[in-house]
Amino acid sequence: MLRIIGKASSINVRKVLWACDEIGIAYVRTDDGPEMKQNPNGLVPVIADGDFVLWESNTILRYLAHKWAARALLPEEPRRRAEVERWIDWQATEFNTAWRYAFSAIVRRNPAFHDAAQIEASRREWNRMAGIVETQLEATGGYIAGRAFSLADIPIGLSIHRWIVTPMDKPSLPHVDAYYQRLASRPGFLKHGRNGIP
C-alpha cells in the first residue's frame, strides 16, 4: 500500500491526500518515517510506493496520475497535458511565492515575518495572482485548465482556499468564488482542502 509521509496539516501533503482520494488510491499516512532521510531538503511530503521513494509534491501528483492511469486528471494528449501541467507549475513558482510572506505574518504569526512593507507587498502580489486565476476561470467557464476538473485544480484549489480564509484586504473575484463552491462538491476537497467545512 502507498505510504504518505508528512503531517496532514501541510498544504503540500494535502495535495497528495486529495489526489489519492480523487484517483481512488489506498494509502496510509504517517507524520514521519525513515523515507524522510531520502529527501535532501528534509521536507514533506515523501511517498513510498513499495521500494520507490519520491519527494516534491507536484512531481508526486504527476506520478500518481500516471501510474494509476488517471487520464481524466492528467490527459495523455500533449497539448491538453501541457495546459494542466502549466498551472501545476505556476502554482508552485508564482502563486506560492506571492503568498509566502503575508501568510507567514498574518496566519502563522511568525516573528521572522514582521516587516510591514513586505507584508503589504506580498498581500498585493497574492491578490494579483488570485486575479490571474479569476481571469483564467472566466475564460474556461469551469476549472483552471478547462471545463473539467483536472490535476491542476488540486494545487490551485488549495492555494485559493488559503487566499480566501486569510484575513486581509482582497478584491471581489466572482469567478474564484464560484470555483471555490464547485470544488466544495468534491469529497476530497472538503476533507483535505476545507478540513470538513462545507
Results as ranks from 00 to 15, higher is better:
Ile132Asp: 09
Pro171Gly: 06
Leu183Ala: 02
Glu125Ile: 02
Leu17Glu: 01
Arg186Phe: 05
Asp32Asn: 13
Pro171Tyr: 03
Gly188Leu: 11
Phe52Asn: 13
Arg124Glu: 13
Asn41Ala: 13
Tyr179Met: 13
Asp31Ala: 15
Val84Arg: 01
Val13Arg: 04
Ser9Lys: 04
Phe52Glu: 14
Pro34Trp: 03
Phe149Glu: 00
Asp31Ile: 08
Arg100Pro: 00
Ile119Ala: 08
Pro174Val: 06
Phe95Gln: 09
Arg79Lys: 12
Tyr27Glu: 04
Ile132Ala: 13
Ser185Ala: 15
Leu74Thr: 00
Arg108Thr: 08
Ala48Cys: 10
His114Val: 13
Tyr143Asn: 06
Trp87Ser: 02
Ile154Lys: 02
Pro187Gly: 02
Leu17Cys: 11
Glu76Gln: 15
Leu17Pro: 00
Gly24Ser: 07
Pro187Ile: 07
Phe52Thr: 15
Leu158Gly: 05
Ala121Gln: 08
Ser9Gln: 12
Arg108Gly: 06
Ile154Ala: 01
Leu43Arg: 15
Glu22Leu: 14
Phe189Pro: 03
Glu22Asp: 05
Ala8Trp: 06
Pro75Asn: 11
Arg108Asn: 12
Pro40Met: 09
Lys191Gln: 12
Ile47Glu: 00
Pro34Ala: 08
Asn41Asp: 10
Phe52Gly: 11
Ala65Arg: 05
Ala48Thr: 09
Ser104Asn: 14
Phe103Gly: 00
Phe149Ala: 01
Thr166Cys: 08
Trp99Ile: 13
Ser172His: 07
Arg71Ser: 14
Leu73Val: 03
Met1Tyr: 01
Ile119Leu: 10
Val176Cys: 09
Phe103His: 06
Asn110Pro: 07
Val165Leu: 11
Ala139Thr: 13
Pro40Phe: 04
Arg86Gly: 01
Ile156Cys: 11
Val44Thr: 10
Tyr179Gly: 10
Pro111Ala: 12
Phe52Tyr: 15
Tyr143Ile: 10
Leu151Tyr: 03
Glu76Phe: 04
Gln38Ser: 11
Leu2Arg: 06
Asp153Gln: 05
Ala139Phe: 09
Asp31Gln: 07
Gly50Phe: 05
Ala98Gly: 06
Cys20Trp: 02
Phe103Arg: 11
Thr166Gly: 00
Thr93Asp: 11
Phe52Asp: 11
Ile156Val: 15
Glu134Phe: 08
Ile23Lys: 01
Pro171Ile: 01
Ser104Met: 14
Ala26Gln: 06
Ser150Ile: 00
Ile156Asn: 09
Ala130Cys: 07
Glu120Met: 10
Ala98Asp: 06
Pro40Ala: 02
Met36Glu: 09
Arg86Phe: 09
Ile160Asp: 02
Ala145Gly: 02
Arg3Thr: 15
Tyr101His: 13
Arg71Phe: 10
Leu173Thr: 10
Pro75Phe: 07
Arg124Trp: 07
Ala116Arg: 12
Ile47Leu: 07
Ser57Lys: 03
Ala70Gly: 06
His114Trp: 04
Glu35Gln: 15
Leu2Pro: 04
Asn58Met: 01
Leu190Glu: 01
Tyr179Ser: 12
Val16Ser: 05
Ile47Trp: 05
Ala72Phe: 09
Lys15Tyr: 08
Trp99His: 10
Glu56Ser: 11
Thr97Asp: 15
Glu94Gln: 13
His175Gly: 07
Ile197Met: 02
Asn39Ile: 08
